[in-house]
Amino acid sequence: MQPLLLDADIFYLYDGSLEGLLSAVFLAFDSKENPSDILVEEGLQYSLLGSYQSVSTDLDHAERVMTGIVSTLGARCYEEVRSVYLSDEDHKGGVILRFLQYAFKHGRHSLLHLAHPAVNEFKEMLLRVTNEAHFIMMFARFAELEGGVFFARVEPRANVVPIVMEHFAERFNIQPFVLFDRAHQLAGVFDTSSWWLVDTRRLDVTFPDNSRSEEGFQSLWQTFFDTIAIEERHNPVCQRNFMPKRFWGTLCEQIPPELRKRRPSTETPSQAAKRAARLTGTVAAHGEIAGQGHDAQAGPCALEAGSCP
């Protein structure tokens, strides 16, 4: 983001927590310094040219920033800051800082100054996070495990499990479930009355196998998915635009037919009416197929969670 690092560049470093980030923001305001960026300390590539200052997390400071945002910019704005914090992008700290510097100066109205670079980059980053959250609401696929817990594995590009848990906990309030973000090693757990987050980095958890009815529902869904497409309108480009390929790994309907456990045994009426000739070609695929590839992709994805370091 900064093409050249000048001597004067100050970088604040924090521990990666929201409190840490807000403490760094506090320090920037308090010291009237203007750090070029606020970065996570862990795993940082230092450069010789900048000067780095590690900010210790101070709950008190963080809370003062929080109340400051809520009272001058509104509770909604605080939520937005929190969402941007969940982004995977390295420069989110700087983006939040520059936005807050601008917004505290210009008041509530500044949220509408969309063309201003500080507001613009903040809003853009926010949009990327909320889009990712929306993708998870669309594409998370739960599988029922033995014992009745539902399990979904997702790999979003932002740490969005905390913002989607409420959505799932509401609609699925009759079933315990685990929403496991493998990319961020974070699991949202719901036990039919409340939900909480579990850091799975240091956990060695094993999940049971899929329940007996699970396979059946997956193949029903796969069948439905294949059948509902109108052949004459075939349009894979459009499909990928709406459902990016990076999600396909966890979508059971996207498992190629030859890797699935079961195949539909009847042809559809319109197939019967129109595709008699082509059927001969597909008969081969109806044979016995083992589902090893399937397991690796989306079936008992739970097993993979067990082997987390």
Binding site: H134, M137, M138, F139, E170, R171, F172, N173, I174, Q175, F225, D226, I228, A229, I230, E231, R233, H234, N235, P236, V237, C238, Q239, N241, F242, M243, L251, E253
Partner: peptide, 27 residues
């Protein structure tokens, strides 16, 4: 429609797509 304890499901005003079939239409 918000959720109700003990019942499955809720609806959101904007709706949610869950998949896209090979013809690119939303499911």
């Amino acid at each position: 429609r918000s959720a109700e304890k003990g019942k499955l499901g809720a609806t959101t005003n904007a709706g949610i797509c869950h998949s896209f079939s090979a013809d690119g239409r939303c499911i």
